[in-house]
Amino acid sequence: MTSVEDDDIPQLSADTLEILQAFLKEKEEREKLELEGGKDVNFEEDWQLSQFWYSAKTKSDLKAICQHIITDDTYKIGLLSCPSVYTSIKEIHKNVKIFEYDRRFASYGDDFVYYDFNEADNPECLQEFQNYFDLVIVDPPFLSEECMKKISTIVKKVVKADGKIIFCSGEVCEPWITTFLQLKKCNFKPEHDRNLGNEFASYSNFDIDKILKNTK
């Protein structure tokens, strides 16, 4: 195994570092002003957290599904690691919680819930939301068996016994998703603003394809 000496690690010049810091400060202030003004904050993707925002069409489709199945104002929707769909669903329903590791989304106030999927085996993890949601939409950040297993543990904890699940992820995760949650693959394919190398698919315990077909 080779080691990297500190002197070999690329360092930003003072001018470049100053420009970067100014950019980050400006972005933070812009997001704050947009939030205070009641606007939809345009959060940028954080690739280090494996964040990739949905396309306008995918957000519209998920919104249409929610609109079709929401029964009343008490219907509870939980979004796990899919923050880009939040504002679309919030337009039609007030009872939405966004579960995120990224604390920027604390800007959404009481709708934000901080969580770390690595805490899934902790009995106290999200205990206050046990058997809580009528619908859970989830898009795990990593395409690994460990991530799928832990996210599935959380999903089973927070969704009601008769609750609905929409699980969006890479097709490579299909064996784990169908095993851990017994979900069926759907024709609906989530799309992203950026072209990703992995093929994505959706899985659910109800017929979302039929809903989308009837809403066209």
Rank of each mutant, 00 (worst) to 15 (best):
M1D: 04
M1S: 04
T2K: 13
S3N: 15
V4Q: 13
E5P: 01
D6E: 11
D8I: 05
D8Y: 07
D8V: 02
S13D: 15
T16N: 06
E18F: 01
E18C: 04
E18D: 14
I19P: 00
L20G: 02
A22V: 04
A22T: 15
L24D: 14
K25L: 08
E26M: 04
E28S: 10
E29G: 09
E29V: 10
R30G: 05
R30C: 10
K32E: 11
L35M: 14
G38V: 00
K39V: 03
V41L: 12
V41A: 13
E45K: 09
S50M: 02
Q51I: 01
F52L: 03
Y54S: 04
Y54G: 02
K57A: 15
T58W: 10
K59N: 13
S60D: 13
S60I: 11
S60A: 10
C66A: 11
I69T: 04
I69R: 01
I69C: 02
I69L: 04
D72F: 00
T74P: 00
I77T: 11
I77L: 03
L79K: 07
C82P: 03
P83H: 15
V85D: 09
T87M: 06
K90V: 00
K90W: 01
N95C: 07
V96F: 13
I98W: 10
R103Y: 08
R104V: 00
A106N: 09
A106W: 00
S107G: 10
Y108S: 02
G109Y: 08
D111A: 14
Y114A: 14
E119I: 10
A120L: 03
E124M: 08
L126Q: 03
E128I: 05
F129I: 07
Q130T: 15
N131S: 12
F133R: 00
V136T: 02
I137Q: 05
D139N: 11
D139K: 12
D139E: 15
F142K: 01
F142P: 02
E146Q: 14
M148N: 14
M148Y: 00
K149V: 13
K149L: 08
K149F: 08
I151D: 08
S152F: 03
S152A: 13
V155N: 01
V155L: 07
V155D: 08
V155Q: 14
K156I: 02
K157M: 08
A161C: 13
A161G: 08
D162E: 11
G163L: 14
K164F: 05
F167A: 11
C168G: 04
S169F: 06
S169E: 14
G170Q: 04
V172E: 04
P175W: 01
P175L: 06
W176D: 08
I177W: 02
T179F: 03
F180R: 03
Q182P: 00
Q182V: 06
L183V: 01
L183D: 00
K185H: 14
F188P: 13
F188V: 12
K189G: 00
K189M: 13
P190W: 04
E191D: 14
E191Y: 07
H192K: 06
N195V: 12
E199S: 09
A201H: 01
S202V: 02
S202G: 05
S204N: 07
I208L: 02
D209P: 07
D209V: 10
K210D: 15
L212N: 10
K213D: 12
T215C: 09
K216A: 05
K216W: 08
